[in-house]
Nucleic acid binder design. Sequence first.
RNA 1: CGGGGCGUGGCGCAGUCUGGUAGCGCGCAUGGUUUGGGACCAUGAGGUCGGAGGUUCAAAUCCUCUCGCCCCGACCA
Length: 569
Amino acid sequence: MRLSNLFGKTQRQVPAEAEIPSHQLLLKVGMIQQVAAGVYSYLPLGWRVLRKIETIIREEMDTAGGQELMLPVLQPIELWEESGRHRAFGEGLFTLKDRRGRRLVLGPTHEEVIIQLIRQHVRSYRDLPLMLYQIQTKFRDEPRSRGGLIRVREFHMKDLYSFDADEDGLDISYNKMVEAYRRICQRCGLPFLAVEADSGAIGGKDSQEFMVIAEAGEDEVIYCPQGHYAANKEKAQSAKAPLPAEELLPLVEIATTGVGTIEELANFLVIPHSRTLKAVFYWADEELVFVVIRGDLGVNEIKLRNTLKCFDLRLATEAEVMTAGLVVGSASPVGLAGVKVVADDSITMGANFVVGANKPGYHLKNANYPRDFGVDILTDIALAEAGQGCPKCGEPLLSTRAIEVGHVFKLGTVYSENLGALYLDREGRQRPIVMGCYGIGVGRLMAAVIERNHDPKGIVWPPSIAPFQVYLCPLAGDEQQVVSKAEEIYRQLQVEGFEVLYDDRSETPGVKMNDADLLGIPIRLVISPRTLERNGVEVKRRWEKSTELLPWDEVIQRLPALIASFGSG
RNA sequence: CGGGGCGUGGCGCAGUCUGGUAGCGCGCAUGGUUUGGGACCAUGAGGUCGGAGGUUCAAAUCCUCUCGCCCCGACCA
């Protein structure tokens, strides 16, 4: 490709609103252009990279046994009402009406559609296992798009769905996908962390996310420095510090005028937060929920939502709490009736806690579960945070921002039961198909690669996904000889099958070199009067500082090794 | 949805407070001089100042409404 013909110019300035490196560089190089909030056009360079990533994904999916197909973007809304996810997605669904007034959605994902397909074609255990995938544009009306390609409303995504006869089969399919994802990340030059993840309101059991550690990431990962544990903060657990065992003391009411928060209570009584129990109120699908948790811990709303199996969850207003007959600032589970109580299991780790007295200006000392109060649900709903203990080894946990590039989960039979995807087993019994689903955001992966592979000059593409392998850069001046040599090498490189970007512009050396660095093509070849004098070509690898002069008849044979040396130094 | 900010040639920005014929840098075009790290000189093209309504002799600037975009939060299989 001659650079003079390439559509899309590099920019010298980018909008101040582009804040993260990948967004700035994508714009600066001229790989994307924004059309609307969270909607982008891909210019030739950006599209080339995207297609290379797709190719890698395709190869790994095929190797794992996947078969590619294509599914519709336009889907009847009834399918989504049938599965119940119409409600789960809520406003996130793009919906529209056709000319007859039928309501359609722009597919945010394709479980419903593929099950419809499966229902018709899979009737017997002989048809299983099966893995089907598609790479296509999906739509989600995100409340807020952000960070260039990190979070968009129209995006390229690969989704593979696995169909098995039983849980053992699902485990096999799932593990194949995890392995494929590892390979995809490796081939794209992306260091990743596979972490435990929440599977959402209608998800299944096991779920892992493939995270790329980056400041620009929108997720927070909690992990053990010894490598024993890593999880999305939404899902993470931590060892809750146990308190020393002590004899249960009698309940005592104490005056605590002006004390409302745990902070104030702990200061007032000069006790650690962990000696108190905190009351938090939520409004969950039209119902008030009283949450009790040890004072040193916070509530993980995602765990709570999963526990309650509700759609809408928010903090209750003060008015709602008072209407239920509770005293804000001094609410108590002791003596409570008529309100659902969800407790974190931390309330069993310790004794003689201070709790509210449900009476303004008073608290109770020495409250103990279950002696003094009951709960409806007792489970883990605590928010794990850095500094708390690793659930495996107790070492203090660390936290980092990360970009979620892939997500795999075991769906089980939730969808196949809801939507009637059944098969007949060997004994002729009808059973639900056991499903898994596995997604990768292609554009987001591209952004993640840039986040991890750039320097102050520009992008440093891993050769596997670089838009071109070689940047051929004559610094000609008046020398016609330089130009004809460059043309000759350009032809040879093409004949040998290299992807070459030939900078045939009559720009100054500074401009060309800076563009070469900005674009991040792995190998830069410079031809100038200076190199011509010595019958050579100057070679520079984008990720190294030094250059070397090679005799020009050796360059082509040395190129593959030079390209392959990425990541080894 | 809550808070903050921004819409002015292709890109980046100033001008708005205090109304008076729209400016700068980059890029682009033409000619010339340059050529190993974003050159220089000259000339030139390009803008209904997001949109609608209003105030005024006069609106990018003041008022009202509206649309779009960004950031933080909420939210997010």
